[in-house]
Design a protein around this nucleic acid. Structure first.
Lengths: 343, 343
DNA sequence: CACGAAACAGAAAAGGGTTTCGGTCTTTTC
DNA sequence: GAAAAGACCGAAACCCTTTTCTGTTTCGTG
C-alpha cells in the first residue's frame, strides 16, 4: 500500500471515502461539508469528523469542471530574470491570493515559439485569464485577439490597440524628475541615459524636455545615450563634468547610471547634492539605499501595476467590459540625499 | 453569443463539438486526435480538420481527472522579493517546462498561516509535487510529513530529517574562497560578514577557517559580523585597515559587503587587487560586474539547485524512492579583477 | 389516529475527456 | 457461398464533485 502513489505518501482522499466512513451518501457528504441546509446536525457532525480524520481536501479541479471556472490565471513572462517582472508578479499574486485564485507562472525566455507553446499549455489548463508581462516598455506582438479568456498586458503593451495594456508612465516620470530638480533650485541639468532603442529611455527624455520647456529652461548638451550600466554612468558623467563644468544636476536614466554618476562626482571632488544633484529612475532598493549619498529616484509603482492587472482580470471574470488601449500608471517621487541635503 | 463568456471571446471548444462537426462520436474523435490505431485514415483526417477549424485545445483538467495526475507542481516560496528565490524558480520552471508540467507559484510572504493556506490550496488543486523554497539557508519547519505528494525543500532545509532538502554548500563556499585567496599569494586575510544569525554566515566562516587552518594560517582579527549591506562593508573595512594595516585580503560575506570594501579601499588609496584582494559571495550579477574592479565571487549555483529539485520531483512521480536528508550543491568560483589583476 | 408538512437522505445527471467492450460492416479464405 | 477474420465506429463507464429532484421518515396538528 505504501509506495503506491509515492514513497511515504497516500493517495489523495476523495469525497466517496469520506461518505463511506461517515456512513452516508456522497451527496449528503457534499452538502454537509458545504454548509447546505438539508442535513441534520448530527449527520453533519459525523461527516465533518470523517473528513477531518481522513484530512480530506476537496478536488478543486472537479469543482471547476462543474462551474466552468478553474480559479487559475496564467502569468506569461518573457524574462523572469529582469528586475521589473518580479514586483509586478508580486502585486498580481497578492491581489489574486486574496480571492482564491492561483497563478500559473510561465517564462518564455524571450522566445516566441516557446511563448506560443506556453500559451497553448495555459489554455489547455483552462485558465480563467491571462497576464502577459514583458521586460521592456516597448510594444510587443499580441498573443491573439480571439482567445477564450481575457488578456491583460503589463509593462510591455500589446501592439494591437484592441488589447488592454497597463504600463508605467515614463513621460510623467521624466517630467516629475525634472520638476523635482527645478524645485531644488537646479537650472543647468544634463541627461545621461541608457539604450536609445528602449521606449523607456525615449519617453523619459520626452517628459524631461517638456518639463524643462515649461520652466523656460534647456537641457545642457545633448542627451547622452548608451547602455543601462554603472560604467556608462561613470564615463558619461566624467565627460559631462569636463565639457560643462558648471552643471548643477544630472538626470540619470536609471538608478544604475545614477550610481555611476555619484561615483564620478565623488572621485572628482564634487559634492552631492551641494554642487551637483543626481536623480535616477526605478527606485531599485539595493541601488538606491546603498549609495553615498542615498539616491533620489522615481518609482514606477510596479507592484500597483501588477495589482491593477489582477483586478482587471477579476473584473472581466465577473462579466465586466474588458476595456482596451494603453493605460498608464503614475510614478512616484522618492526623495533621498542625492538631491536634498540631510539636516 | 459574443460577450457570453467574456467580452470579445468565445467559450472554450470541447471535444463534443469537434465530434459533431466531424460527424463522428466523441469516442472516435478522441481516438483520432490521440493517434489510436482503430480509426480509418479518412475519418481521422476529418476529425483533425474539424479540430483545427475550431482551434480545439483538449482540456488537461478533464484528462487529469481520469489519469489521476494533473501535470502541475506547486512552488511555495516564503519571499519572492529575495534575490535567491528567482534563480531557483527559473531553474525549476526550466526543468519542468521541458516535460509538460506547469508551475503554480505561491508566495507566503514569510507568514506561516498564509503558508498553510497556500498549501491547502495547492493540495486541493491536486498538484503532483511540491517545492518549498526559503529565503535563508537556516532550517525551517516541515510542511508536514504525510502529504499525498512528494515534497522537496530548496535553499532552506526542513527541520525534519525525513524530508528531502537541497541547499547550497556554504561551508565549501567559504573554503573555496579562502583557497583562492591563498592561491593568489595572500596570507593576511580578514573576514567581514553579515548577520551572525544566518546559517549562511556561520557556514562560510566554518569553511573559511578550515581552509586557513589547512594552510597553516590564521584569520586576521575576529570575524566581523553585522548586516548584509554595502554600508557595513565600507565601515568594517575602514576599521580593518586602521587596525590591521598590513592585511592583504578581505573575505566578504556577500557581494554587497564586498562592494563596500572596494569603495573603502579605493577611498583610502589602497590598490585592488595590488595591495588588497577582495572576494564576495553570491555572484550577484549587477553587483559583481559594475564594481571597480569587477568582483571575484563564489556562485552558489542556484539555478542548478532549482533544476535538481524539479528532477527529484519528476523522479518521485515516476515512482522512484524520494530520498531524504539534506543534500548540498557545490559552489563555483568566478574569478574577476578584484583578486587577479587583468593583463 | 390520520393527514399534511417539514426535514432529511440518496439517486442521478452533469461537466469533458479516455478507454473498454461490443457491435456492424467489409474483406478474405476455403 | 458461407464462415472466419479483421477493420472500424459508438455506447457506456469512469474520474470527482455539486445540484436537483425524488423518496422516505418524522413531527405536529386536527
Amino acid at each position: 500500500m505504501a509506495g503506491k502513489d509515492h514513497v511515504g505518501g497516500r493517495k489523495a482522499v476523495t469525497l466517496t471515502e469520506v461518505a463511506r466512513l461517515a456512513g452516508v451518501s456522497v451527496a449528503t457528504a457534499s452538502k454537509a461539508l458545504n454548509g447546505r441546509s438539508q442535513v441534520a446536525a448530527r449527520t453533519r457532525a459525523r461527516v465533518l469528523q470523517a473528513a477531518e480524520q481522513l484530512s480530506f481536501v476537496p478536488n478543486t479541479l472537479a469543482q471547476g469542471l462543474l462551474v466552468g471556472r478553474t480559479g487559475t490565471v496564467g502569468l506569461l513572462t518573457s524574462d523572469l530574470q529582469g528586475r521589473f517582472v518580479i514586483p509586478i508578479l508580486m502585486g498580481a499574486e497578492d491581489a489574486f491570493g486574496a480571492g482564491r485564485v492561483n497563478v500559473f507562472l510561465c517564462d518564455a525566455r524571450g522566445d516566441t515559439i516557446r511563448e506560443q507553446h506556453q500559451l497553448k499549455a495555459l489554455l489547455s489548463r483552462r485558465v480563467d485569464g491571462l497576464i502577459v508581462v514583458g521586460s521592456r516598455t516597448d510594444s510587443r506582438p499580441s498573443v491573439g485577439h480571439d482567445l477564450p479568456v481575457p488578456v491583460v498586458y503589463v509593462y510591455a503593451p500589446s501592439d494591437d490597440p484592441e488589447d488592454l495594456s497597463l504600463v508605467p508612465d515614463n513621460v510623467a516620470a521624466g517630467r516629475l524628475a525634472v520638476e523635482h530638480l527645478i524645485s531644488c533650485g537646479r537650472s543647468r541639468i544634463a541627461h545621461v541615459t541608457g539604450d536609445p532603442s528602449y521606449a523607456a529611455a525615449q519617453d523619459r527624455v520626452t517628459g524631461a524636455l517638456a518639463a524643462l520647456d515649461a520652466a523656460g529652461l534647456e537641457l545642457v548638451g545633448e542627451v547622452m545615450y548608451s547602455e543601462w550600466s554603472e560604467r556608462w554612468g561613470r564615463d558619461a558623467t566624467a565627460v559631462l563634468l569636463e565639457r560643462y563644468p558648471d552643471i548643477d544636476a544630472v538626470l540619470c536614466g536609471s538608478d544604475q547610471i545614477a550610481r555611476g554618476a555619484l561615483d564620478t562626482a565623488r572621485d572628482q571632488g564634487r559634492k552631492v547634492p551641494g554642487d551637483i544633484a543626481v536623480i535616477g529612475f526605478d527606485n531599485w532598493d539595493e541601488m538606491v539605499t546603498n549609495s553615498r549619498p542615498e539616491l533620489t529616484s522615481i518609482d514606477p509603482n510596479l507592484q500597483l501595476l501588477g495589482r491593477s492587472a489582477a483586478q482587471r482580470v477579476f473584473a472581466a471574470l465577473d462579466g465586466e467590459e474588458m476595456g482596451k488601449g494603453v493605460h498608464t500608471q503614475a510614478p512616484r517621487l522618492v526623495i533621498r540625499g542625492s538631491t536634498v541635503a540631510r539636516r
